[in-house]
Amino acid sequence: MRQIKHLFIFSALVLLMGFSFSNFLGIYHQTILALCGINIILAVSLNLVNGFTGQFSLGHAGFMAVGAYVSAALTTLWLPTLTNPFLMTEIGVNLFFLFALLAGGIAAGLTGFLVGVPSLRLKGDYLAVVTLGFGEIIRIFILNIEPIGGARGLIGIPQLSNLYWIFGFVLLICIWIHRIVSSIPGKQFMAVRDDETATSAMGLSTTRIKVRSFVYASFFAGIAGGLFAHYIAYLNPATFNFNYSFQIVAMVVLGGMGSLTGSVAAAILLTGLLEALRPLQDLTGVDLRMVIYALTLIVLMLTRPEGMFGRHEIWEFFKKFKKSPQGFVR
């Protein structure tokens, strides 16, 4: 009964958000919102690795690229060759899109597994550089595959994604990741973050735990990539360079490593900030946006390294005002 209630609330929220966003806003604001949603998925999933498992990954855009290209290849190259009449209908196409998204996610998850198994034995900054390297290798690899456009980019992707899809997945993935980090495997992630030696002394395989967190994160990044590809309807390998990975890292760091709502807030803030600073560009004639972005990162580290929310979720701040039961002081 409870599940049905939750499912009902969930679909009502998605419909409401999708409906209001796509009917009361112009195309420009809709695109910003869509990018916000995609960045939320990326930031929240990267937080699983960087925040909850304490491993510093810098190659998230690479996994997003895998998901984007796999799902776009399915809908652009494979879908037109299929002659099943069901796939001509509205529902059929959308179901195929869902299938393509999941296939992209699974492909990204597999890539995450292949990258994670060798590289997660490394620690700290070495891991950061290796993941950055893998991200770049994935991008250069895509650059050299001719059937999906190579360096020219993949054009003619059907625009199947919309705000309903994006915000549906945003809600779904946020809840999903929240459930992961509240479960036993999620506690294992945090155990690895807090003390890796102690965790392995407890008889847990830390590499397995880290790879698991990495595969989850890559899977969600792949789905975000698929949504991105079918919203913009054009893919170029240059989009997924390491500056994009840095941007996602900046969102996670700004929100607070280990806070899901922090990542959501930071993703909205930074995506919105970049757009809000566009008038500044018109005013001064120069593109100051990325400079301000980089300065934010430095100043944040110097003054508030734990980010906006630290390791807390937003509702924990409201809990403080409530009276504790039986007069216990928390």
Binding site: F56, F246, V249, M290, Y293, A294, L297, I298, M301, L302
Partner: peptide
């Protein structure tokens, strides 16, 4: 590390 990335950007 994050600061170094920030300085670089």
């Amino acid at each position: 590390l994050i600061t170094a990335i920030g300085v670089s950007l």
